[in-house]
Design a protein around this nucleic acid. Structure first.
Lengths: 196, 196
DNA sequence: AAAAGAGCTTAAGGTAGATTAAGAATGGGC
DNA sequence: GCCCATTCTTAATCTACCTTAAGCTCTTTT
């Protein structure tokens, strides 16, 4: 099990003793996922929070007309879960699948609670990363309310530079809230305008 | 200082001993705010998380064209802050003001850290309410991506029934992302359709 | 009680972005 | 190295929502 990346991510927020690292790592369950393979289907209970060691996952819904809407990408070094379902342990609303072959580390809800009991410092770690995630969704909400599709796309490019050339463009369209056709047109317009 | 409401809110997530309650309450600073009075201007550092004991506040931005976009309402019993600024203690992007005369309890960032040091259980409380807030912004993001303005309005009515008749309609328009004129038209259409 | 302001409604005309449909380019699986 | 999938592009048409502007209804102020 490759634990270097996740320990580095944690060390950014709390300091662990070797004993505490060991407790934590024992609670993780490694898993390999193939491209297009699902980790979670809508309606299922999300039993694990998932840390991405390599590859890229996405969380998304399908609306009444069959269109996908991507809530989140999880490239290397990010966590992903259906937070609503993970918190309540009731059926969720997200599908989670892999955009590329991926290796992940899973932390079950029960193991997380056990971790909090054994090493209370982890409450702090999860509080802090949840706060950061909250801020990014707040910014995204304001972007959705106030920006044109073109500005949302430019923001996306700034915030996720690594994804621009590694995932199909249609997924970016689905994340920023436009059709693939319109994103294609925007990109052409931006080239003409010399913005690209 | 009226502390009943905030203690009840906390008791829903963690159990406090009388001694711990006392420590907490001493760190709070009560404040009265008049309608239209500002708690925070864009660009300022958000030094306090604010719990609303009575009244209603809102957090919002103003875009490049001078239009307001409401990120959050904070009616009685809710917390509000510019989370980005509160976390980083750098200049923020939100204005926060009162829609009605209000009484609030302020917890400064320094006092919050002191609270975590003295009563680590509070890490858990803030983790949990941050998780819930995160989930509600995730749902809102998906609503913005997948729903029509009319469905977003119906959702708003379901989620904030107390606000529908207590705040001006133009603020609801600004929250769901339409112009006041269009919300007015939608409501008329919904009456005709018998949806109302 | 008049005046001023703030919020709401109505309606005509405009635009960002969706829909539909077709063809072109890419790329993964065998 | 070929084939079928998937993805991307282009363009015409359509629509949800915006803009502008005017008049109306409440409040609040004087």
């Amino acid at each position: 099990m490759d634990s270097e990346l996740i320990l580095k991510s944690i060390a950014r927020h709390i300091a662990l003793e070797p004993r505490e690292e060991e407790i934590f790592l024992k609670l993780l369950q490694p898993l390999k996922i193939k491209r297009k393979q699902f980790l979670l289907h809508r309606g299922e209970v999300c039993r694990h929070a998932v840390f991405v060691n390599s590859g890229c996952l996405r969380g998304y819904t399908i609306d009444a007309n069959g269109f996908e809407h991507i809530l989140s990408f999880a490239p290397t070094g990010w966590w992903i879960a259906d937070m609503y379902s993970y918190i309540t342990q009731e059926g969720g609303y997200l599908n989670i699948d892999a955009l590329e072959d991926a290796q992940v580390l899973q932390l079950s809800k029960e193991h997380q609670e056990s971790l909090f009991a054994q090493v209370p410092k982890f409450e702090r770690y999860y509080r802090i990363i949840t706060e950061k995630s909250l801020v990014s969704y707040q910014l995204r909400t304001l972007d959705n309310l106030s920006l044109t599709a073109q500005d949302r796309y430019l923001n996306f490019c700034r915030r996720y530079p690594s994804l621009i050339n590694s995932i199909p463009q249609k997924y970016i369209a689905s994340y920023i809230g436009v059709t693939p056709e319109f994103l294609s047109k925007m990109r052409k317009d931006m080239q003409k305008q010399g913005l690209w």
